[in-house]
């Protein structure tokens, strides 16, 4: 159950990051003037690490 949760958490954050990244490419400053995208990147790395751990545990 926790493995599925962290996988979904990882995918949702990753999708949000790419969505905001695309918005920033389309209109410079839309995201970066008010929000630091690196915050989501940190969450992605953390949740990705947890997904790996749960996958390794299962094996």
């Amino acid at each position: 159950m926790m493995k599925d949760f962290f996988q979904d958490f990882f995918v949702i954050n990753m999708s949000a990051f790419f969505f905001f990244f695309t918005l920033e490419l389309i209109k410079e400053g839309l995201v970066s003037n008010h929000f630091n995208l690196n915050i989501i990147l940190v969450v992605i790395i953390f949740s990705g690490f947890l997904v790996l751990i749960y996958n390794l545990k299962k094996n």
């Binding site: 949760f5 958490f9 969505f19 905001f20 008010h34 929000f35």
Partner: peptide, 20 residues
């Protein structure tokens, strides 16, 4: 938690668009 996270990102998008 998943629903909260999705709603959070939707709210963040609306907030960013409003400020921009």
């Amino acid at each position: 938690v998943k629903i909260f996270l999705i709603l959070f990102f939707i709210a963040l998008t609306v907030w960013l668009l409003w400020f921009d």
